[in-house]
Design a protein around this nucleic acid. Structure first.
Lengths: 182, 182
DNA sequence: ATAATACTGAACATGTAGTTCGGTATTATA
DNA sequence: TATAATACCGAACTACATGTTCAGTATTAT
């Protein structure tokens, strides 16, 4: 990819992320984005069809990255193919805490609903693969789709609580809360 | 209140609710609302400052009504001041099922995020008042604010699951799922 | 050096929000 | 039933955002 393209694309993403941490997505204008990114109006529309598609591409990049990384080896002490179910979730929390691509800032902003929904959608596949590890007395009385929804929601809402309360706890403590709550 | 005012206000709400069950809030225009409500443009703005304030007033009416009713006697077999914690939640589910003011339609629409968030905010007070009834071995290890968030979220997400899956189950079954999940 | 390609920025068409105002219809009330 | 108050109408208007176009300029790859 042409260096100009790359630079423009990144400048737009950076400007967009910065604006998202300040104000509602709905009230961010294209004029503001290109002003912050310092690119021409026509350039913006050469890269993104609309403001909504910009958001969509941003979400894609953010969550593909974090979920891809969760599926591979990396520098943490927990890896994906461990049989303990908390390893995957702890791993995710640790990734979040590192704030790659400012993902935590976005999840903390007033646009958090937007990103938490996206986060939940990506999380479902992961939960499905870990489902057998959550078996229990009570859980056998519940429909599988209900259990998937419950586990996924609980994790997302745990993250939301963590962020809303200032991220004071360590990922380990949060993972413990998550498993206690279930 | 002048009969004309009342009729206009209701016509606007009806039109708005109808449109909300068809398309996204963001892409509903004032022109569509007044066309469906069959009122003049200036009349709309005499009643509501903006499209957003219309949404806000709608949410207020919907949830104040349903939560007020939950706190009073009514024609169900469960009432608020029963000590069993499930009575309140079962009661809420029964109210939802009655679809007062089309609240279920709105929670089912593609705008459900909008209303579920509002629903959750109103639910928190109720959960706080019922908190002692959810005590358990595990729960004592969790911070109170975390527990409130968890119980509230679980109820909202249970309702979401119920609606998304076609509302096949009775309120009694859903209430049971809710308590089993916790 | 050159051809391809990306960026610029102003001008433009389109569409929506919200306001204004003179005229009309409905309401309360006396 | 007459009257004053008030709600509604609707067209015209301002303001602003979106998305497009295009001729000119700068950067890139080769």
């Amino acid at each position: 990819m042409d260096r100009r393209q790359r630079k423009t694309r990144e400048a737009i993403f950076r400007a967009f992320i910065s604006l998202l941490s300040e104000k509602d997505f709905e009230q961010i204008t294209v004029a503001e984005i290109i002003e912050a990114a310092d690119v021409g109006r026509a350039t913006f529309y050469a890269h993104f069809e609309t403001k909504d598609s910009l958001l969509k591409e941003l979400c894609g990049e953010l969550f593909c990255h974090i979920f891809d990384a969760t599926g591979r080896h990396c520098d943490h002490r927990h890896i994906f193919d461990c049989t303990a179910p908390d390893s995957v979730f702890l791993h995710l929390l640790q990734h979040l805490q590192k704030n790659d691509n400012n993902i935590l800032d976005l999840l903390s902003s007033r646009n958090n609903e937007l990103f938490l929904r996206y986060f939940k959608n990506n999380l479902v596949k992961l939960v499905e693969s870990q489902l057998p590890l959550f078996e229990s007395e009570k859980s056998r009385k519940l429909p599988e789709s209900y259990r998937i929804n419950h586990i996924t929601s609980t994790f997302v809402e745990t993250v939301r609580w963590w962020i809303d309360n200032g991220k004071k706890e360590s990922p380990e403590v949060i993972a413990e809360y998550f498993f206690l709550a279930l």
